[in-house]
Design a protein around this nucleic acid. Sequence first.
RNA 1: GCCGGGGUGGCGAAACGGUAGACGCAGGGGACUUAAAAUCCUCUGGCCUUCGGGCCGUGUGGGUUCGAAUCCCACCCCCGGCACCA
Length: 855
Amino acid sequence: MANEQHDRYTPGTVEAKWQARWENEGTNSFTLDRLRAPSDPFYNLMMFPYPSAEGLHVGNIYAFTGADVHGRWHRLQGRDVFEPIGFDAFGIHSENFALKVGTHPMDLIPRNVANFTRQLRRIGGMFDWNHTVDTTSPDYYRWTQWLFLQLFKGGLAERKEAPVNWCPSCMTVLANEQVVGGLCERCDTPVEQRRIAQWFFKISDFAPRLLENLAHIDWSETTKKAQENWIGRSEGALLRFPVLGVEATPELVRSATESPQTEGTGGSATDPGTATADASQEEGTRELLLEVFTTRPDTIFGASYMVLAPEHPLVDALTTPEQAPEVAAYRERVARMDLVARKKTDKSKTGAFTGGYCRNPATGERIPVWIADYVLMEYGTGAIMAVPGHDERDFEFATEFGLPIPRVVAAPDETADTPLAEAYTGPGHLVNSGDFDRLEVEEAKSRITAWLAEQGLAEARVNYRLHDWCISRQRYWGPPIPIVHCEACGPVPVPESELPVVLPRVEDFKPDDSGVSPLARVRSWYETECPECGTPARRETDVSDTFLDSAWYFLRYPSTDRGDVAFDPEITRTWLPVDAYIGGNEHAVLHLLYARFITMALHDLGHLDFEEPFARFRAHGMIIREGAKMSKSRGNVVVPDPIIEEFGADTFRLYLMFLGPFEEGGDYRDQGIQGPFGFLKRLWETIVPVEGLAEGDPDPDLERKLHQTIEQLTRQIPELGYNTSIAAMMEYLNAVRTGGRQARRSEVEPLVPLLAPFCPHIAEELWERLGHEGSIFEGANWPAFDPARLVEETVTLAVQVNGKVRGTVDLPVGTDEETALASARAEPNVARFLAEGELRRVIYVPDRLLNLVVA
RNA sequence: GCCGGGGUGGCGAAACGGUAGACGCAGGGGACUUAAAAUCCUCUGGCCUUCGGGCCGUGUGGGUUCGAAUCCCACCCCCGGCACCA
């Protein structure tokens, strides 16, 4: 009795014991030597957490457990699995929270990291604690800065002006999410736009490759689709509209053609760039040309006016003196809007007439030029030809301002004169389009583009939605951008030998009226000498985006033993690209795209020999609680510590993985944990007085079921089919225990490694009690199955009459049709339905079903 | 509006085009117990039943098929992402 007491399943004891042992024996840690020479490396990555003050969120635990199961499974196959974890602790979240509680982030973050570390150890992940990263450590961000310098030297970083949200009361830059309904979230002042010089990475140069490579990487389809949409390739044409009455001075031609977008899409193969514009100059066309991008060159005959973005550089040149006050007022009004409100689609169209005109090169007609905020400076050329008959936005605008709405496309049942009640954007043939009438839309696109190209007024063009990555943050809590501004030399990179540029401890890190980063008021820090000419110079005071920290962390993990390089070339070649990356789809377009870009850039710069960082990526689902989304404000967040306290980490892990398909998520119901808990208890009690297990071969039926279970798990676990794998183990254990029978060792022992990926602690304990030396994860301990033993001897055949099941018959496997039919006829209920008519047809699916068609 | 992913018992969910609801939760009944907890056994989609079984049932409406939760067409609803992108 006392012994029984002693042997009860107490998760706390078991888990503490094994966590300590893994730690002491370095079960999950790699030495530098082993990293250099693994026998079968497998890099298992999960998205490192942001260490918040609240502690590890159950969503993190869900993700990490799913990834850990995957890593442990590979380990049980005998592979060398490297499974690192770290902390993504820079950024506006930490900074805002620090501001709120009045603690310096340099004090706050270490506390949070310590708490996260404790929690992460407690859930039993197979983490290599000797290879962690903390993005806020100078040892790490030194290399983040190094990365910036590589891109800068490679011509992939540039400084240019861009709009930011500006709160005139707090005198600070706001992120989009800090703007609530056009007001500053802190002081409710209306937010406006301000243009400031910022650093950009030229990710848009990589748009075509980032898109094309998606076809060759093994990623969740949903993630790839999200990236595809984000990159937003669209095929169309660049068209040039002569501006009437404005002479083409060199400056105007420059501003007309050097819009950021024309550069941004420079990577596209169909883009000969701005040369044609110059050529047309040489032909003596003294007219200024206005460039627009369109996906519908076929509708050019319907372009009844033009629209420039209010910020477009040619607005001043086009505006007549009479219209100048109205234009200026409109531009000011737009500038006062925050960036979110600016792009709202549900507001009505506004705009102002510039007084200027273009000539429609197709019709020869004079068409007015307007400015309107529905045209965005950051897309295409920042100007459009407006075709109100066949574009919903233009239609709305033209209706608002009483502009003509010609029809140039007709559906099969329409004519050139069918009135347009709304923009028609469907297929059809051209009308009112001169020689191009009757052509189908698709053909007209290329024909019209070619026709205009002959006159130097068009070229085919591929445009991308993806815009350059602004990495400047006018904030405190991030790595300082390693640049020195010198009056004479311009922006000069900090020499690599002087890295890191250490973020100074600034007690007052609140944004203030200086208008830039808090670092801009630490004179002792920003005053320096130009690394090139030695004259007094000023450090860049902006810090870099948190997404830069996380765009390369997976490169650092295996090389954290190396203080002298960002990543060791040999080790990197050995371990990367990452074999399996599991994470949330909320990072589908930012983190995952930036990481791909950085990898591609480092590849081109000669630092890496691969250009895609993650060979395989799987997005996990989201978990909700009792049917509702979890959030702090609802107060329905699952707090992991008490649950682990009561049931143990193994049960918690098992339950999380049991909730539903890992890639779809699940509903956390507090009561539900009883199921997995009971399962572990029963498993323990089935095995634990090991002396109580019977010897001998397994029961034949159980043996078959065991092999089926092993087969199923071997197939499903690597595909993240966790919930059904767990169900299969439960089913098997139920079968072993039916009728309270005494289990044989041979029946239950293989269940231990099957369970190990999910519940590593109890698996280790049972494995040890069963007499094995060392950790179950050291060695290829996953059981094999024998395909020959999967097969049943008898099957239950469903017998249908006219597609409805009327009975079943038990038959030996492989019974022929004739015999099966005879047995079926012998079933009284089947015979009854058979008697209702004449047997017309027999469908026999051996070992499954017999369908008798009667009429 | 566009792009994904989904709609199956009271609930979470299973189901190579072949017996819908495995596994688990919750619930009913029973055993053990002085009692409770724990544990174990057992039942549990709905309606009807002469207890043999029958009818209905996977968001809705059509279609293909001997046979559809599964494939095709149209539509409705929910979740996630993007969105004045020319």
